[in-house]
Simulated assay, not measured.
Amino acid sequence: GEVLLPRPCPAWWAPQARLLGRAVYHVPTPAECGGVPDPYALLETVRRIRDEGGTPRLLVLSVADDPTATVPPPEVLHEAVEAAADEGLHIVSDETWRDTLHRPHDTVLIGPAEMAPDRVTVLTDLSGAFLPPSLPAAVARFPATAWGTALRARTLDVLTALGAFLAAPVAAAAAYVLGEPDEVAERLVRATRLHARVAAAAQRRVLAAGALARPPQAGRHLYVDLDPLRPALTARGVGDSQDLEDFLGERLGMPAPGGHRFGDELGALRVRLSTGPLLGSTQQERMTSLTAPDALELPHVERALNMFGSAFDDLRAAARRMEPPR
């Protein structure tokens, strides 16, 4: 059956579904957050798919969202889960960044499995918060039902047929971090605090330049909307998110994947910006950032943030020069 995804969503979701031969439909998200579909838009999309002869079966969502770095309020998530349940959809909840809340004492994060345990499979990519990208491993928790047991068995059959086995060193590392030893937990807390500080500083620079970005609440990135600076960007030959990706990638000296890679419209001037490149260009600089009492005071972090901000300040200055006189 068809797969429904929020717009925007992680870059890998739609390609994976299409590799399986599944049609993908993107559903708009609420104004206050990303990661979950607007419940009314979800119901309308399901109705439209069925009117066209389709069979929507699966909704994928995220409670600590990539790319928007937002956490949906519990009531918003509940409405989306309730709408999905009413339409008979199974839910896959990607909770890769769940353990990276920037303000854990102020942010309420509830997963859909806590609301509808029989309808939700929880997926976590351990190379998000726990393991380096060179050690790819993920964990899935299926519903504790007969149907969930059958789904798990079918998933294992497919993975076996594909030869998708974990190498012994990767399996050992995954088992170790899943035990949450003190050194892993402490490093995660330090890393989360560091990325939260840098993400907030980057967002302040984006907003000061007149662009838009929701306050980052989780993860190691922020999602920026540069539509308010469109006239200045148009003057530089930037007309869509692919142009914007190329333009900012060169100006910032870091990857700046456009929103089209996350299911957004090509014409929308949005990019996902990671905080990692702002922490240093060498392993030593990154480690210094991780252990410093205040990384924002480090020369290499301050320099990176200033360069980051200047790219947007230049666009803001150009946009102001193009404004008609008052």
Rank of each mutant, 00 (worst) to 15 (best):
L109C: 10
L109D: 04
L109F: 07
L109H: 06
I110C: 08
G111N: 06
G111P: 03
G111H: 07
P112I: 00
P112C: 06
E114T: 08
A116S: 14
P117N: 07
D118R: 14
R119D: 11
V120L: 06
T121Y: 05
T121M: 08
V122H: 01
L123E: 00
T124M: 06
T124S: 11
D125E: 13
L126I: 05
S127D: 15
S127V: 08
A129T: 08
P133M: 11
P133Y: 10
P133T: 10
S134E: 15
A137F: 07
A138P: 00
V139W: 03
V139G: 02
A140C: 12
R141D: 11
F142R: 01
F142P: 02
F142V: 00
A144L: 13
A144K: 13
A144H: 14
W147H: 14
W147L: 15
W147S: 15
T149Y: 11
T149P: 01
A150Y: 07
R152T: 00
R152Y: 03
A153M: 10
A153I: 02
T155Q: 09
T155F: 12
L156T: 09
D157Y: 01
V158A: 08
V158M: 02
L159N: 00
A161F: 04
A161E: 12
L162I: 01
G163V: 09
G163E: 02
F165I: 08
L166P: 08
L166R: 05
L166S: 10
A168N: 08
A168V: 06
P169G: 09
P169D: 09
V170P: 04
A172Y: 06
A174S: 14
Y176F: 15
Y176I: 02
V177Q: 00
G179R: 15
G179D: 13
E180S: 14
E180V: 07
E180C: 10
D182W: 15
D182I: 07
D182K: 14
V184C: 08
A185V: 15
A185L: 15
E186V: 09
E186K: 12
L188F: 06
V189G: 03
A191K: 11
A191H: 14
H195D: 10
A196Y: 12
R197S: 13
A199E: 03
A199I: 04
A202N: 05
L207C: 05
L207H: 02
L207G: 01
A208H: 03
A209P: 01
A209Q: 00
A211H: 09
A211S: 04
A213H: 01
R214C: 03
P215H: 07
P215F: 06
